[in-house]
Amino acid sequence: MSKFKKIRKIVLTTGIAGLVGVGAIWAYVKSVSHAVIYKDLESVPAKYVGIVFGAGIRRDGKPSKYLKDRLDAGVLLYKNGKVKRILLSGDNGSNRYDELKVMKEYCVDAGIPPEDIFVDYAGFDTYSTVYRAKDLFKVDDAIMVTQAYHLERSVFLGEKMGISCVGFAADKGDYQLATKNEVREQLALVKSFVDVSRNRKPKYTGGNIDIRGVSNFYKK
């Protein structure tokens, strides 16, 4: 066998093994989360906290459609007694971009009292949001509030972090870049599995803001 053929065989074998491994990860993540994802309000079980994941704001300072639908879903859960607290998590990494300010104002305008709203200013990605929900806010049970394509990963991370959680799909109509986001999500599932396996630490850790205690709504 020529050297080229040997190398090609190694590459092909490695590639096939990699694809099998990725497929196994996808199947495992879905097995953990699929049965506890809900699309209708009546069937979703009540939990103490609704975790609303950030999803960007528009140039005019309004929430993106992704984010607006997540916030609306969180408000719906709260007003129907499905959750007692709302944890908003997003990116507040610069003075020019304050996603959490928009999220806070939206929820208050929708009728949620500030004392029932908690804010994570360093939820830079899904993993960080869920890790900090458990580590910083002491969340034990929660409803993950985001679009359906994002729920399998969110619920998987919650369960692995020790949070008894379910997912509530915030989908309303069509979304821009939906196909791109769904493809990206498949890669993110694998990354999340690796992050959990090596217990990756978020950029900011530590502290204690008990979700059952006094809200940090007015702090920053």
Rank of each mutant, 00 (worst) to 15 (best):
M1C: 04
F4G: 08
K6G: 09
I7E: 12
R8G: 11
K9D: 02
V11I: 02
V11Y: 01
T13K: 14
I16E: 04
G18K: 15
G21M: 08
G21Y: 14
A24L: 13
A24W: 12
W26Q: 03
W26A: 04
S31I: 05
S31Q: 06
V36G: 08
Y38A: 15
Y38P: 03
S43M: 10
S43C: 08
P45G: 09
K47I: 13
K47N: 10
Y48P: 13
V49T: 10
G50K: 05
V52C: 15
V52N: 13
G54M: 07
A55K: 01
G56T: 08
G56H: 04
R59C: 08
R59V: 10
P63L: 07
L67T: 14
K68V: 14
D69L: 00
D69M: 00
R70A: 01
D72L: 00
D72Q: 01
A73S: 03
Y78A: 14
Y78V: 13
G81E: 08
K82W: 02
V83T: 05
V83P: 01
K84Y: 04
R85V: 03
R85Y: 04
R85S: 08
L87F: 03
N92A: 06
Y97S: 07
Y106V: 15
V108T: 14
V108K: 14
D109K: 09
G111P: 07
P113D: 10
P114Y: 01
D116C: 03
I117H: 06
I117Y: 04
A122T: 15
T129A: 04
V130Q: 02
D135W: 05
L136K: 15
K138S: 11
V139F: 07
D141R: 01
D141V: 08
A142F: 05
I143E: 14
A148R: 04
R153H: 11
R153M: 14
S154F: 03
S154N: 07
F156H: 13
G162L: 11
I163D: 10
S164I: 14
G167F: 02
K172E: 06
G173Y: 00
Q176V: 12
L177C: 08
L177A: 10
A178P: 09
T179D: 12
N181F: 07
E185W: 06
A188N: 08
L189V: 09
V190C: 08
V190I: 12
K191R: 09
D195F: 07
S197I: 05
P202W: 04
D210A: 09
R212S: 15
N216L: 02
Y218N: 15
K219I: 10
K220S: 10
